[in-house]
Simulated assay, not measured.
Amino acid sequence: MEDIELKQPFDEMLIREYLLDNPDFFNRYPELLLALRVPHHERGAVSLVERRQEMLSQRVAQLEEEITSLMNVAVRNEKIFEFNTQLCLDVLDSEDLGQLRITLANGLKSEFNFSHVRLITVHDIDSELANIWRSRISNDYYFGRLTQSESKRLFGSEVGSVALTRLKSENGQVIFAIASKDPAHFHPEMDALLFSQLRRILAHKLPKL
């Protein structure tokens, strides 16, 4: 006698779709909530009511964590906004290029723990800086890592990752460069809002120094 392949007498996906389309099903048949049992890795089999309550509790805990995380992000963003506003005002108050460099370095290093903050004038005779200017900052900004020689030329030592942009001043072209010890801190997909705001302020201020 040939073996007969046993098939489930129902389509699980059809039942799933039916229950999703009829969320009041168990209201019409409340006895099923207590009769049906669901495996539980710690408590054995539990009723659908118990399982639903547990899932709701887990969801509430997850939502509380998400809300806490969003609140922390909001507090951090507010702090960054206040810092950036004050830094921009300090930049505008700078009386010369030396004071401007000190203002940028002290502010950004203390707030974000950056390792280097530099404003570097690019002269035509300096081919290495000119190459960095052309290759790395062709689209106004560069976020990411540098070669060893590029790092040493811009910062005097190897760094983890950098944010670069280019500006113009009375003395010629200028590279605004920030470096972090963390190789992953600056990356191509990051938000450039803070950096672009500083760039606009510097673009306004540098020609006047």
Rank of each mutant, 00 (worst) to 15 (best):
L14W: 11
H40S: 11
F83I: 01
A35L: 15
A61C: 05
R51V: 02
A45N: 12
N72C: 05
Q53D: 14
M13F: 12
L70G: 06
N72L: 07
S47Y: 05
E31L: 11
E65G: 02
K7I: 11
L20W: 08
Y18G: 00
R16T: 08
I67G: 00
D24R: 10
L6C: 08
N77S: 14
R37G: 10
Y29M: 06
L63I: 12
F83W: 04
F10H: 07
E54V: 01
Y18W: 13
F26L: 01
S69Y: 01
F26R: 00
L14I: 00
E66A: 03
K7V: 07
E17W: 02
N77L: 09
I80P: 00
V46A: 06
I67D: 06
V49F: 09
H41M: 13
E31C: 02
L34D: 13
K79D: 10
M71I: 08
H40E: 12
M55T: 10
M55I: 15
N77R: 14
R59Y: 09
L32D: 04
P30K: 01
V46H: 02
V49M: 13
I80C: 10
S47V: 08
D21A: 13
A35I: 03
E64N: 05
L14M: 09
Y18K: 03
E78S: 15
S47T: 15
D24G: 05
L6N: 09
A74Y: 07
R76K: 15
S57W: 08
V75T: 12
S69L: 04
